[in-house]
């Protein structure tokens, strides 16, 4: 119980420091807004995102429909609100997966070195050399589009980068004497990697993960745009963009608002990532 309180207090401290950066504060606020929106989705959306209002098709933004309607008369505002859920869910799960997988790989290859390091990092190189979108299209094309598929694919795409960052952070720390002290005690490799080393590489990992989060948002929207992610009628910002494509010239609101939504979130995440980087560098 005590340690939980201490951790909570530490977290608050970190947040305070992060808000010393103006951009960081803006980023955190925007993300916070979107998270709240996503959580309260059904409550704040004025209509159901999937209900048709055929008499109000292709209506521009108005008091009744703040973001206008699409070709089926669905309220864009509600669709954008509900779309935040899938974006946040997909991107954060994918980033989490990349974080877990990548840091484990980085820890193991960085610490053990030798042939394990060589072989595994070459696999990582191969994975990284695929253009993200192409790779995603390939996998989802073969296995069929699905939410779970998108998460796995995005996670895989970003695992190598996180692995690299984790690995180089490990290389810096592993020669330090407290690691040798652990070896002298006869600690197992697993203990040394996950109990002694891991807490010391949070910093660079956190920076990289936050950057990847931004990319993951964008990539999931792109996949949605290509129809490879969440399937209609579930609103996904990328999907909304896809549906808006043919009507861009005379129903621009169908694409502008989802685009702004994506942009705002990605920019906010990047601001936050930069603030985290500054925090780690001791500049905040």
């Amino acid at each position: 119980m005590e340690s939980l309180l201490r951790r909570a207090r530490n977290a608050v401290q970190v947040l305070k420091r992060l808000s010393n950066s103006k951009l960081g504060l803006i980023g955190m606020s925007i993300i916070f807004v979107w998270v709240v929106v996503a959580l309260l989705g059904p409550i704040i959306a004025p209509y159901s995102p999937t209900s048709y209002h055929p008499q109000d098709r292709f209506e521009g933004p108005s008091l009744k429909y703040p973001f206008g309607t699409d070709r089926y008369g669905r309220d864009m505002f509600s669709r954008v609100i509900m779309g935040s859920r899938s974006v946040l869910l997909l991107a954060s799960s994918a980033t989490l997966m990349a974080l877990i997988l990548g840091s484990s790989i980085g820890l193991i290859t960085g610490y053990l070195g030798g042939i394990v390091d060589e072989v595994v990092m070459r696999f990582m190189d191969i994975l990284m050399s695929f253009p993200a979108l192409l790779f995603a299209m390939l996998i989802l094309g073969i296995f069929g589009p699905s939410t779970f598929g998108v998460i796995v694919v995005i996670g895989l795409v970003y695992t190598p980068r996180i692995a690299r960052v984790a690995r180089s952070a490990v290389l810096e720390v592993k020669e330090k004497e407290f690691i040798e002290a652990a070896k002298v005690r006869g600690e197992s490799n697993l203990y040394i990697m996950f109990v002694e080393l891991l807490p010391n590489i949070w910093g660079p990992l956190g920076v990289e993960a936050s950057v990847r989060f931004g990319y993951a948002i964008f990539l999931s929207a792109s996949l949605g745009f290509l129809g490879l992610g969440v399937q209609p009628p579930t609103p996904d910002w990328g999907l909304l963009m896809k549906e808006a494509q043919s009507y861009m010239s005379w129903a621009p609101w169908m694409s502008i608002f989802p685009a702004l939504a994506i942009a705002s979130l990605v920019v906010a995440v990047n601001f936050l990532a930069d603030a985290i980087r500054k925090y780690e560098a001791g500049e905040l």
Partner: peptide, 10 residues
Amino acid sequence: FQDPRATLNP
């Protein structure tokens, strides 16, 4: 060890 700065896990 020699270096007090690196001898303990921070």
